[in-house]
Design a protein around this nucleic acid. Structure first.
Length: 502
RNA sequence: GCCCCCAUCGUCUAGUCUGGUCUAGGACACGGGCCUUUCAAGCCCGCGACAGGGGUUCGAAUCCCCUUGGGGGCACCA
């Protein structure tokens, strides 16, 4: 039997990185087992429905390299109003892959459940239900439906009047969830609510839709967050009632924020889009996510794995039982590792949009500008943890700077007069040196420092402040060369003036 | 309130199933040093954990029980 897993997002907003981590596990498992990974859109919540989030979800998956083998077809995406539907259309033999297109199927199953004695119609008003719950809360009882309509005679509620269909959960006995990560989990049926399966608007609830779709789409393994554990028995009951085979459950622990609480906005980036816009590389994020709650074991002490290596090593059964905290620090480190591994040409392409968005480089980028960028890349490559940092590292190379305050132009353990003299000497040296390249500049500049009785760092520090306007900057001579002699001399002159008028 | 899950350095984890090789290994972060034109990168060193208590056993991080702590769920949301 071939392994089939799915990601079934609800289009109610941007996918959360914790869910994406679970998607990574699903995808890895499918690829490892030579199975299929299916994308299904669960748009049964018409209240929270946000159609724009559908392409955002798909774009995020694409960006992270999580390709799906079956998913919404061209026609389905068109009907959803997705822009550029050709880009995401996949289709497949078990469609439609959008739940709002499968309503007749859910209704049929719900009616069959009634016929089989496993469900019943209920026309309790939301007001009454709220009263029941309030009373239960006040008495500190378990909050659940009081089964008011459960034993009404058949036909008491007409199929034509507004009503919902509820699951008729056995009053006694136990339901066991066999979970490959947690083991067997036993639930008393008496504690399971008579869940609504079909809403009065004709849409199914998640519990019905997910079972029906997983069954007809032949899903074999369900790996999802363990916040779903307590509702799993309801679904097992539906499988049994319909005589369907129950898939294998793998409840993976949640991803928490750095304060140990459920990861949310206040912890930092939580959606794929944000991670992309902050300059995380998809391959780094993928590597990091794969290792969040799972590790290859076997004495393996590496942390950096290619996509191929992760597929080879991945094992759903080895996923950790305890929840993991998302560490932005470690992700930053790993992203830096991946940035350093990039070829200069590749890094340039990835940096370009960040420069352009900051308005430092025009879009499209002219060829002579590209030539300059090629010389900048090696200056910053080993300093970046995130691509967006390139803007602050290199802005001084693109824009005019303000002359730094005089006190910054005084070298360590030097007087203003000594600094001024050093600046002038450096200026005349840099005015003459030929060619205006690091290899030609550095030796005479070092000689100059020695001549003035200065450490190289003292002299270079003054020039750095004068030319970059910053204490910290990319390597000095590489920066000077990129800037060009003319602008360097102008900035040195401005610095000299600042020092004189202090 | 009820139900469920979980528990190794601050964090991610190896080791747990198949007790001894664990005076518990690696990585991030942190502290120190080397290198060095700043910052990085790199290299070296250091700090740092089996939640607590009972068992079982010759022997427990590993098996069992209790306590504590953390997390999740209890909708005509997913």
């Amino acid at each position: 039997m071939t392994v089939r897993v799915r990601f079934a997002p609800s289009p109610t907003g941007e996918p959360h990185i914790g869910n994406i981590r679970t998607v990574v596990f699903n995808w890895l498992f499918a690829r490892k087992m030579g199975g299929q990974f299916i994308l299904r859109i669960e748009d049964t919540d018409r209240v929270r429905y946000q159609p724009q989030s559908i392409p955002v979800i798909m774009e995020g998956l694409r960006w992270l390299g999580l390709d799906w083998d079956e998913g919404p077809s061209l026609e389905e995406l068109r009907r959803l109003g997705v822009e550029d539907p050709e880009r995401y259309a996949v289709g497949g033999p078990h469609g439609p892959y959008v739940q709002s297109e499968r309503l007749a199927l859910y209704k049929r199953v719900a009616e069959e459940l009634i016929e089989r004695g496993w469900a019943y119609r209920c026309n309790c008003t939301p007001e009454r239900l709220e009263q029941v719950r309030a009373r239960q809360r006040a008495r500190k009882q378990m909050v659940m439906y009081d089964r008011h309509c459960r034993d009404l005679p058949p036909g008491a509620i007409s199929p034509d009047e507004p009503h919902v269909i509820r699951l008729k959960v056995p009053l006694t006995g136990q339901t066991v969830v066999h979970d490959i990560i947690k083991g067997d989990i036993v639930f008393e049926n008496a504690g399971i609510d008579d869940q609504v399966l079909l809403k009065s608007d004709g849409f199914p609830t998640y519990h019905l839709a997910v079972v029906v779709d997983d069954h007809y789409m032949k899903i074999t393994h369900i790996a999802r967050g363990d916040d779903w554990i307590s509702s799993t028995p309801k679904r097992i009951l539906i499988y049994r009632a319909m005589g369907w085979e129950v898939p294998t459950y793998c409840h993976v622990p949640l991803v928490l924020g750095e304060d140990g609480r459920k990861l949310s906005k206040r912890h930092g980036a939580t959606s794929i889009t944000e991670f992309r816009d902050q300059g995380y590389l998809p391959e780094a994020l993928f590597n990091f996510l794969a290792l969040l709650g799972w590790s290859p074991g076997g004495g393996e002490e590496r942390e950096i794995f290619s996509r191929k290596e992760l597929i080879e090593r991945f094992d759903l059964f080895r996923v950790n039982r305890a929840p993991a905290i998302f560490s932005y620090d470690k992700l930053d480190w790993m992203n830096g590792v991946y940035i350093r591994k990039l070829s200069q040409a590749d890094l340039l392409e990835r940096l370009l949009p960040f420069w352009q968005r900051a308005g430092l480089v025009p879009d499209p980028c002219p060829e002579e500008m590209r030539e300059r960028l090629r010389r900048i890349v090696p200056l910053v490559q080993e300093r970046l943890k995130r691509l967006d940092e390139v803007v602050e590292w290199t802005a001084f190379l693109f824009r005019e700077i303000e002359a730094p305050p005089a006190e910054k132009l005084v070298g360590k353990r030097m007087t203003p007069e000594e600094s001024l003299a050093a600046l002038r000497q450096a200026r005349s040296l840099l005015a003459e040196v030929e060619p205006f390249e690091p290899e030609a500049m550095e030796p005479p500049m070092r000689a100059l420092a020695a001549e003035l009785g200065l450490k190289a760092g003292q002299l270079f520090g003054i020039v750095r402040w004068a030319v970059t306007g910053q204490k910290v900057a990319p390597p000095l001579f590489g920066s000077l060369a990129v800037l060009g002699r003319e602008r360097v001399l102008a900035r040195l002159d401005a610095a000299e003036a600042a020092l004189l008028t202090r």
